[in-house]
Design a binder for these strands. Structure first.
Lengths: 163, 163
DNA sequence: TATTGTTATACTCTATAACTATA
DNA sequence: TATAGTTATAGAGTATAACAATA
């Protein structure tokens, strides 16, 4: 860290006064760290954030369709296909044909899927607690409620835009 | 919205009780919305989130090097090159050779760069206010301080990991 | 006609290894 | 040797258009 020569030319401490005022700036930085760390946490289960999220949704909502899932995950239908393919090939979920509407599949988790989901959720929870270790409980509670409020607010906003 | 037949098979309202407890879940959803909206906001200036962030950093820190900038932006050096190339080609910034250490460049914004930066910052600020319209001021303030705390906490965590 | 799932495709962001030129 | 910038490349995530099967 001996950038004594550098100090005369470039700022030794980077100024982010302008960017610090932007929600998107902090959101991106925070998400990048959590996303990178979460990838490591999910690696033992052979899951990524997207496959993990899809699996949890299917476990919690047996019978939902790919359209519904894509909508819940805020991704486009085409991008969900390979995620479902992967989960199905690993026999964590099944695609059941719906008899009353043969266009769509009812997604259901297998026993193996439910078991893996439970383990991954526990690992993810432990991972987040480890990541937030050092913050006092009040800050953590504020963080969670603020983020949940933001997420809901933005979600409702886009819904009313689409209609 | 007439999924009356669907209701008998699949859940009509998606349950996200499990995922709702995860910071990463809300973080990702919020970031996706803000990122998508910000892209639209920056389009008139021919900027993306990355080129915008780089430009603001250079304006606020005249003379910084690409390594310093990559570090500040939390991206890898190779990925910064094309961003700087783009800003330089558009004559928003210049790469000045540092005489005392000819390996590196001192990045500086041109007058045009500073002007565009100012306009883009204002548009971005207006965009965020518009996006958060409807939330009461207390929630907004909580959100900002919570996110800033999170961003700083995670940043310091990774720094101590790298050393 | 509209919708579900699918294919193909393209663009952006991210990450790593290896090179060059300078120190 | 170590560092700054670069090239090449590969892997994710995301978005759109167009298609087949079904409603």
């Amino acid at each position: 860290m001996s950038n004594t020569k550098l100090a005369s030319i470039a700022p030794s401490r980077i100024n982010d006064d302008t960017l610090r005022k932007f929600l998107g700036y902090h959101l991106k930085r925070s998400f990048n760290v959590i996303q990178a760390d979460l990838s490591e946490t999910l690696k033992p289960f052979d899951l990524r954030m997207l496959t993990f999220t899809a699996l949890v949704f299917i476990v919690d909502n047996p019978g939902l369709s790919q359209s519904q899932l894509a909508d819940a995950m805020d991704i486009e239908r085409p991008n969900l296909v390979i995620i479902i393919d992967e989960l199905e090939q690993r026999e964590l979920i099944v695609r059941d044909r719906v008899q009353t509407d043969r266009r769509m599949y009812a997604l259901r988790a297998t026993l193996a899927g439910k078991r893996l989901c439970k383990k991954a959720v526990a690992a993810d929870k432990a991972h987040e607690l480890r990541l937030l270790a050092g913050l006092d409980n009040e800050t953590k509670a504020n963080l969670m409620s603020a983020l949940e409020a933001l997420s809901h607010h933005l979600q409702n906003r886009t819904e009313s835009h689409n209609s």
